[in-house]
Every structure is written in structure tokens, then in C-alpha cells.
């Protein structure tokens, strides 16, 4: 079968670790045809394939909801954990602490993160647990047939006609406020922007948050919705074009350095951010706040990497945990010797 024609198909072409893109896939999606989440799944597959990450070194984590089903649809040769509603971050935290050699990807939704899971979302960022946290944000509870979520914009109209009267929560602003060092927003239909943003997030040393507007084709794709395909396409304002350059490739000379910001990640990879129409520095946190606050008051839907600070310390480093993953420690290192127990017993006499 190894004819040149077949090798040209990326689905069947092995990457540097000898794995085809097809092998990064998962089981067939059971989501509605046209669901934005399925596009996100494809971008995730592309990113892992491009980054040459062996699937068995990946831990997939999710909560409950349409979005949280998706880890079954990519990297079927990676272990996955579909937790209880809103509690994925705690499971991810325990997993990351127990085995720091894994690459962690977490998929959640706006209900799973911004409502029932808000507490855990806040605290995983606070601890800076290394993982890419993707919120597939459609502003609606799909599985229970279309209730507003906490990220629904004020004034948005429900399929049944009700208007959302409460202010929506901007998860990117919140993540920034909490000290997250990698914060971006994208649109599920924008492969060009999303794939490099995912790659950057997977290479980031701490918690990377991506708020992905992913329209619900069934319950939130109508006139009056602010998270429909049409609304996003009409209102999306990308702040830059993102490029991701892996550590083993020199920086692409095609970029015009006059308009490009290069961010070096801890593993030597680079993010290149080519500005579109505004002078924006994604390493300036105050600028990120300013940009998002202004967008919030003007109603603009901004996408792009708002903030990145590669110089960050993970929780394992803060706690001074052994570099050998805890799950790989030998019995001698796990269980102190008899002399230790004898010493304790002597002190209690």
C-alpha cells in the first residue's frame, strides 16, 4: 500500500514518531451533524499529530456535557477520564501530580466550567497545573435542550424566544485575573488560528486556557444568538495570525519580523503572532486586560492569543515534587525502612 499517492495523504503519513494522523483519531462522534465541537476535535488531532506527541503519553480529561464527550473522538490510544459534572479539574490535578510525564488535555464546556465547575476552574488555574484546558463554549446547555449558560451574552435570544437577562462571564478575562499564563480565544471553524493555539497550549508549562466559541447547531444557531455561526463569522475580529514553530525547526523566515511577535516557549518551541490591524503585545498583561475590557463594552468578539507568559512555574515545581513521576517510584522510595518506624515508635514511648 506504500505507493507515493497514499503517502501523500496526511491521514496515512506517519509523523516523526511514526504515527499517522488517522491513528490520532478516535471513535465516531455522536454529536449533532455540524456541531462546532467536532471541528475542535479535528484541530486537536492535527495539533497532536504535528507536535509528534505519542498518544500513550497523553491523558485526556473531561467533565459532563456535549463537549466532555469529545475526548472519546480523538486519540483513542490515550487513556481518558470522563469525570463528574464540573469536577474534571480536580481529577486532572491529581493525575498531573501523580505522573508529571504526561501531556494533559482537558475538554470542558461553558456549563461544565462557568457554572457547576467554576470553583474547580478557578483553583486549577491558581495552582497552574500543566494542562491545556479547552472550553467548547456555545453559551447553551445542549444535552438538556437549550437553557442559557453563564457565558451567554446579555440580550442573547434563546431558541424558544426567551432573552438572557444576566451578564455573561468572560472566561478569558477571568483566567487572566486568576493569573493564568496562557489565555486565548478562538472559533471552532478557524483551523488556521486554532491549531497553532492548541500547539502552544500543549507546549505551555502551566495551565493554558482556550475559550473556543463552538456554535450549537441545534439549540444556539438561530437569529438573535450571539454564539451562532453567522454571528461569529460576522463579528469575529482576530487580533493576529498565530504561527507555531516546534523546537526542532528554525523560525520560519516567511514572517515579516516588523509585524511579528515571537514568544519562546520553555521547550524551545516558538509562537509567532503576526499582528493584523492593531499594535498588540501578547506578553503585556495590562494590555490584555485593556483589550478584553474594551471588547466587552463594545460587544466585539475578539479572537487570538491574549496573553502568554512562558516564564512560569508549575505546581509540581512549587511543591518540590520528585522529577521521577510518583507512579514510577520504587517500593524502596515509597515505603520508608523499618528504621524509620522504629525511630517514630521510640519517640512515642
Amino acid at each position: 500500500m506504500s505507493t507515493p499517492e497514499v503517502r501523500a495523504n496526511p491521514m496515512l503519513t506517519p509523523n516523526k514518531v511514526g504515527i499517522t494522523k488517522k491513528e490520532y483519531g478516535g471513535s465516531a462522534s455522536t454529536l449533532c451533524t455540524g456541531c462546532g465541537h467536532d471541528s475542535v476535535t479535528l484541530h486537536i488531532i492535527s495539533a497532536f499529530y504535528d507536535l509528534n506527541i505519542p498518544p500513550h503519553k497523553v491523558a485526556k480529561l473531561s467533565g459532563i456535557g456535549c463537549s466532555s464527550k469529545t475526548p472519546a473522538y480523538f486519540l483513542s490510544s490515550a487513556h481518558g477520564f470522563n469525570a463528574v459534572h464540573g469536577r474534571m479539574p480536580s481529577v486532572a490535578t491529581g493525575a498531573a501530580m501523580a505522573n508529571r510525564s504526561m501531556v494533559n488535555i482537558a475538554i470542558s464546556g461553558d456549563g461544565d466550567t462557568a457554572s457547576i465547575g467554576m470553583g474547580q476552574f478557578v483553583h486549577i488555574i491558581r495552582r497552574n497545573i500543566p494542562l491545556l484546558y479547552i472550553i467548547e463554549n456555545n453559551g447553551v446547555y445542549g444535552l438538556t435542550k437549550g437553557q442559557f449558560s453563564a457565558t451567554s451574552d446579555k440580550g442573547a435570544i434563546q431558541k424558544k424566544g426567551d432573552t438572557n437577562t444576566l451578564q455573561g462571564i468572560d472566561l478569558c478575562l477571568l483566567a487572566l485575573e486568576l493569573g493564568c499564563n496562557y489565555v486565548g480565544r478562538s472559533f471552532s471553524g478557524d483551523a488556521k488560528q486554532m491549531v497553532p493555539m492548541i500547539k502552544g497550549g500543549l507546549s505551555h508549562r502551566g495551565t493554558a486556557v482556550m475559550d473556543v466559541i463552538s456554535p450549537c447547531i441545534t439549540f444556539n444557531n438561530h437569529e438573535g444568538s450571539t454564539k451562532s455561526y453567522k454571528f461569529v463569522k460576522d463579528n469575529d475580529q482576530a487580533i493576529h495570525e498565530i504561527g507555531f514553530v516546534p523546537s526542532y525547526t528554525p523560525i520560519d523566515v516567511d514572517y515579516d519580523h516588523g509585524t511579528t511577535k515571537v514568544v519562546e516557549l520553555p521547550d524551545g518551541a516558538h509562537l509567532t503572532l503576526k499582528k493584523i490591524d492593531r499594535d498588540y503585545d501578547p506578553t503585556d498583561k495590562n494590555a490584555a486586560f485593556d483589550l478584553l475590557h474594551k471588547a466587552q463594552s463594545s460587544g466585539a468578539l475578539l479572537t487570538g492569543l491574549f496573553y502568554v507568559n512562558p516564564d512560569t512555574v508549575s505546581y509540581q515545581e512549587v511543591l518540590k515534587i520528585a522529577e521521577t513521576p510518583l507512579v514510577e517510584l520504587s517500593i524502596e522510595k515509597l515505603r520508608p525502612p523499618k528504621s524509620a518506624l522504629d525511630e517514630v515508635m521510640e519517640s512515642l514511648k
Binding site: A59, T93, G94, V327
Partner: peptide, 14 residues
């Protein structure tokens, strides 16, 4: 969160 972390770490094998 405490029990969630415990399940996550146990799942990993700790």
C-alpha cells in the same frame, strides 16, 4: 476537589 484529585492520582496509579 479532594476526592476528585485522589481519584485522578489513583487512576494514574499512585
Amino acid at each position: 476537589a479532594a476526592i476528585g484529585m485522589v481519584l485522578g492520582a489513583s487512576w494514574m496509579g499512585a
